[in-house]
Computed example of a mutant assay.
Amino acid sequence: MYVKDYSYPLYLIWLQIVVYWFHEFEEYILPGGFLEYFNHNMMKSVSGDYPLTKAGSFWINIPLVYLLMPLSAILAHYFGIKWGLWCAYFSCLNAFAHVVMFLKFNRKYNPGFVVSVLFNIPIGIYTIWYFLSNNLVSTKINIISIVIGVLAQASMMIYGFCYLVPKMKKELQ
């Protein structure tokens, strides 16, 4: 909380991380079940722990959410706020993916959906709006932040659909 008094924009960047960790808590702890949901609904697998495994989920989330996001906030503190805006874009994009899953699968709950709707999307949009309305980053930095956010989200989707699906199909042959 000390960051809020020091620099409100930096606080908003750190808040993205806390909100995303809360999102992960909903996905994996309470109520949890994201692996099972993803495998059954997105991958059409009969197994709740295949093709996306706990290890696979670990290697998707740890580098991005637990290393790169905090590293970006640290860089934003020491080298300029521009280093952290991508976190808000990524958080929003991932949250919108949960909304799409909700709509696609007959308006049924998916782990991560509630935090996405109540926190990730509103706080992410507010952060982006705050940065843009206060001219805290240039258009170039905003575009770069969007691209990084999209690439971060795409990396998760590419892993799922370009690695796990072919792997599953190959093993079924």
Rank of each mutant, 00 (worst) to 15 (best):
W86S: 01
L67R: 05
F25P: 01
R107Y: 15
V65W: 11
P31E: 13
G32N: 13
I148E: 03
A152W: 03
I158C: 09
N142D: 11
S138G: 03
P122Y: 01
E24N: 06
G56T: 08
G33H: 06
T139V: 11
Y8A: 08
V65H: 08
M43Q: 12
M156Y: 02
I74T: 06
Q16I: 02
I148A: 06
N94R: 10
I128T: 00
N41G: 00
N120Y: 01
I125S: 06
M69F: 10
F58L: 15
Y130V: 02
V165R: 02
N135P: 00
I62Q: 09
P166Q: 07
M69K: 00
N94C: 10
F25M: 08
S133D: 13
P31H: 06
I17T: 04
L75A: 14
K54V: 14
Y66K: 06
E27P: 01
L172A: 15
I143E: 02
I158K: 07
F119P: 02
M156R: 03
Y130F: 08
L52M: 15
A55Q: 09
S145A: 04
Y8W: 11
K4P: 01
T53L: 07
D49N: 15
W21L: 09
V65G: 00
Y159V: 02
G80R: 07
I144P: 00
L67Y: 10
N120C: 14
